Computed example of a mutant assay.
Amino acid sequence: MSALHQRLNKALLIAITAASMSLASCSMPQVDPTSKTIPTDSDQWQQNLGATFENLPKSDQQLLSRYMLRMKLSGAYGSGAMPRTTIKQALIQQREYERLHPNNPTGKKSPLTNQPGITANAQNYPVSLLPVKTSDSDSLNQVKLQFMLSNHGNIAIQSFEGTLTMTDIALTEGKRFDVPLSEFDPAIKPEQSGKIVIESSIEDINVMRAIRNTRDMTIEISQGTLNLIDGQEIKF
């Protein structure tokens, strides 16, 4: 075989090899960076997710950063509390969380709730009694009570659960009403009011008299929790 043929065969072999490598690289599936699992140990996030993080769009980088900060603040990671969460799942969860808590995307707690012994000012959340309705129950003593909760705070109220206490000149002691978790839809915005409806058994005739004549009646939150739209909890 002549030297010319050898050179042609060698060039052809190189071309075929290069073409095969090109086809192989084109046929390899692209790895989705959002399929990577987030380590449960937050100390490993930088080491394990650094390169993957850089491959995400800028908006997803910011969203994932807020998710990670929210998880660290909540203490969910580091103890293996949320294993096998992918970046894609984390982004979905964070978008939904921010939809529900637009003013608190990282879940940072209010300084008010981080200090033991600090309680809310009840005057910011006054309660009044609306006209009493007869309950659907057959019992004559069962009534449907409607309370109006006003919001004089700065953040909308999402829900309330706790105990209301009614005092009146006709009562020797206050009457307590337990309120199950009540969600407000829409949330009670500042300087607006929302309705709380419960059913209660009224056996004391003096209680009924006080309800019929509300002139000397006062109602306040004696204990419970107000959940605000930004994720804060106001304890009473």
Rank of each mutant, 00 (worst) to 15 (best):
M1G: 15
Q6Y: 11
L8Y: 09
K10L: 14
A11V: 13
L13K: 15
L13S: 15
L13I: 15
I16C: 10
T17Y: 08
A18E: 05
A18R: 02
S22T: 12
A24I: 12
C26L: 14
V31C: 09
P39Q: 06
P39A: 06
D43C: 14
W45N: 02
E54D: 13
P57D: 03
Y67Q: 04
M71R: 08
P83D: 02
R84C: 13
T85F: 05
I87C: 00
L91H: 02
R95M: 07
R99A: 14
L100C: 10
N104P: 01
N104C: 09
K109I: 13
S110M: 03
L112K: 06
N114T: 15
Q115M: 14
P116M: 10
G117S: 09
A120L: 10
V127D: 00
L130E: 12
K133S: 15
T134P: 08
S135T: 11
S137Y: 07
S137L: 10
L140A: 15
N141T: 14
K144P: 00
K144M: 13
F147Q: 01
M148D: 06
H152A: 05
G153Q: 01
G153N: 04
D168C: 10
L171N: 00
L171A: 00
K175F: 10
D178H: 13
V179W: 01
V179H: 01
D185V: 14
K189M: 12
K189P: 02
P190G: 06
S193Q: 07
G194E: 00
K195G: 09
V197A: 09
E199A: 05
V207S: 00
I211S: 05
T218W: 04
I219K: 05
S222F: 04
I229E: 01
Q232F: 11
I234V: 08
I234Q: 02
